[in-house]
């Protein structure tokens, strides 16, 4: 992220590239980026507003769709003590916002081999003993832009309940805002990721149909089909895609099967 000169025109009618395309006569509002005041069009997201103000995101921006966790932002409204947290690509600017990006937080991430550590909660405790420094202040939960019950899953981990921790943390996007607020210096999101991995590897039953499908793939069942597709022209591929057989929307489960069955 680096700053370039602010656009001279206060409210440009058209912005190009990553810049916002503004409606005619768009209203602007003041926001503060790293303490400096900028006039930005209202209705933009924080990320778009920062780009409008002249910042380029080299890091700290990813999917722009609220799921990659690269653009966590801390903000505060002028005149109030309360800190708020959000994703820059999802949160709309408001007048008098003080903004700071936290694109990365130096949280401890343990090294492990999932095959070697085993499926017991003690494996997580041994890799992240700092879990036991939690004081239940709940700042992590308050900071989460995905509304994850962070204190809830940390408590579950301390109680040895990996399944509960895995389920409670499912919406985590690994942005690290929880860790940035933690007085116990706990890397909540890394511990939760480990819990989900252990849950997937050791606790959830294996899906039998997946096993059969993987065996079929490894046995070369689909090789001919893939080779055929690789030979086709782009036009033919597009035609084939458009004309493909599809399960009708809202079909009753078990009521439909394709006419072509040789790949089943």
């Amino acid at each position: 992220m680096c700053e370039t000169k602010q656009k001279t025109q206060a409210t440009p009618k058209v912005a190009t590239g990553d810049r916002a395309i503004l409606p005619e006569g768009a209203k602007t509002i003041p926001v503060y980026i790293m303490g400096k005041k900028y006039e930005v069009p209202e209705t933009l997201t924080i990320m778009k507003a920062m780009e409008f103000a002249g910042f380029h995101f080299l890091r700290g921006a990813g999917c722009r769709g609220g799921i990659c966790g690269a653009c966590p932002t801390v903000y505060r409204m002028a005149g109030d003590y309360k800190l708020h947290f959000g994703l820059a690509c999802q949160t709309v600017v408001q007048a008098d916002m003080y903004l700071a990006q936290i694109p990365f937080f130096p949280a401890n991430r343990a090294d492990y081999s999932i095959e070697e550590i085993g499926g017991l909660p003690e494996a997580i405790h041994a890799l992240y003993p700092e879990l036991f420094r939690c004081v239940a202040c709940n700042q992590c939960t308050k900071a989460c832009p995905m509304d994850v019950d962070v204190l809830g899953y940390i408590s579950a981990l301390k109680q040895g309940n990996i399944e509960k921790a895995a389920k409670l943390s499912f919406d985590c996007i690994q942005c690290g805002l929880c860790a940035s607020r933690c007085m116990g210096e706990i890397p909540q999101y890394h511990a939760a990721q480990l819990a989900r991995r252990i849950y997937g590897r050791y606790i959830l039953p294996n899906a039998e149909h997946l096993k059969t499908r993987v065996e079929a793939i490894e046995a070369g069942h689909y090789d001919a089909m893939l080779a055929e597709l690789e030979q086709m022209s782009k036009e033919d591929l597009e035609k084939k895609y458009v004309e493909r057989e599809r399960e009708p929307d809202f079909a009753e489960v078990g009521s439909w099967s394709p006419a072509e069955t040789k790949y089943l």
């Binding site: 036991f132 239940a136 019950d149 204190l151 940390i154 408590s155």
Partner: peptide, 13 residues
């Protein structure tokens, strides 16, 4: 006696 565990409890410290 019916024992009801409280919801969403955390470590007591």
């Amino acid at each position: 006696v019916e024992v009801e565990e409280i919801d969403r409890w955390n470590c007591c410290g």
